[in-house]
Structures are given as structure tokens and as C-alpha cells.
């Protein structure tokens, strides 16, 4: 995985229509980004479609990346997530929550521990840890696996009518904790 300065300079070159830079970015980031789309879509073909669409957008919008707004990797990941979510919605998010293990890896405390180890991430880690279990699970499942309200309701055993309210409550609690 490339460091932030390298990614930022690749994005600057892509904004100047440097096609080789797009290829370098793909080589550096494709595995991480495909991991994101595949976690959301859980279907390699759909995940590849999403990454394809995302890279067309990167070619088009690289100039919109503003280093003042944060990491280049986070910007890229965000763009790729939106492409994957669009793909999921286009496919009707038809995948029922039949995979009972879904999200177990992402929800394991050790996974959070590892991912949020850096100093600037400690706060988010701590805030997630203080969230009620159902909020935390709901937020992580939705973010990592693109799970819909209906699927969350089934998975977390919460009534469909109130699941959106639960998630929103969890998000606002998280914001107050990690502004």
C-alpha cells in the first residue's frame, strides 16, 4: 500500500490526464479497493464492475481531491464505496442476510483494535467501544458490508420500523463523542 504523499502526487498527475499515473494508482491500490467493493457486494463480478466504474470516476475527478480535506487513501476509498453502494442498490441489494457469519470478521474486537491503532484513530475506537452493542454492530455492518435497513433488522433482531432510528441514534452519539 502506497503512502499518502505518493497517492496524492499520483492523483495530481491523473488530474493532468497522465494515464501512466492511473495505472500506477491501480497497481498500488487495487487490492485494498477491491477488498472494499467485495466486502459490500460479496460477489466478485459485481465488485469488479464497481471498481471499474470507480476508476473511471477517479480518472474524471482526480482534480477534485483536496489534500486539506484528508488522506488520499480515504478519498479514494470513499469514492470506491459510493460506486459499490450504487452497484448494490442497482442490484436491489438482493442478497438476503443468509450468511450468518457475515460481518463476524469486521465485528471482532481484535479487528477494530488493529485497524484503529493509530494515535489519531484512538478516539474513534474508544467512541465505538462505548457505543451500545447494537449501535456498534449496525454501524460496522452497514459501513463495511453495505447492509440495508431490512438486512440490519433481520441480523440485529430489531423491528424493521425502528431500525433506522436506532442507527441514526448510534451515529449521532458517535458524532458527539468523536466530533
Amino acid at each position: 500500500m502506497a503512502d499518502n504523499a505518493t497517492l496524492a502526487s499520483l492523483l495530481a498527475r491523473i488530474a493532468r490526464a497522465d494515464h501512466a499515473a492511473l495505472h500506477s494508482l491501480y497497481q498500488a491500490e487495487a487490492e485494498r479497493l477491491f477488498g472494499l467493493t467485495n466486502a459490500i457486494l460479496r460477489n466478485r463480478e459485481a465488485a469488479a464492475d464497481a471498481l471499474h466504474d470507480a476508476f473511471l470516476r477517479v480518472a474524471e475527478r482526480a482534480g477534485q481531491y483536496d489534500p486539506a480535506q484528508g488522506d488520499a487513501a480515504a478519498w479514494l476509498g470513499g469514492l470506491v464505496r459510493y460506486a459499490a453502494l450504487e452497484q448494490a442498490r442497482r442490484r436491489g441489494r438482493e442478497r438476503p442476510s443468509d450468511d450468518l457469519m457475515l460481518g463476524d470478521a469486521a465485528l471482532a474486537p481484535e479487528a477494530l483494535e488493529k485497524v484503529l491503532a493509530g494515535a489519531e484513530r484512538k478516539r474513534l475506537h474508544w467512541c465505538l467501544a462505548t457505543l451500545e452493542e447494537k449501535y456498534r454492530r449496525g454501524i460496522l455492518l452497514a459501513y463495511v458490508h453495505g447492509v440495508s435497513h431490512a438486512q440490519l433488522s433481520a441480523r440485529l433482531h430489531l423491528p424493521m420500523a425502528s431500525v433506522r432510528g436506532w442507527i441514526r441514534q448510534g451515529l449521532l452519539t458517535l458524532r458527539d463523542c468523536a466530533p
Binding site: 472494499l36 476509498g77 488493529k114
Partner: peptide
Amino acid sequence: WEARLAPLQGLAPPEAPPPELWARI
């Protein structure tokens, strides 16, 4: 919100895309 939640991107395990994907892009 993007900045707040971005660290959670690390929870998705990296995976090699299909080899022909770059050619398709």
C-alpha cells in the same frame, strides 16, 4: 462524516481483483 468513518475502511480485507480488470478499465 466521510472523514470520521474513513478509518473503518481498514476493516475490509484486501483482495486481488480479477486479473483482466485493468485491461477492461
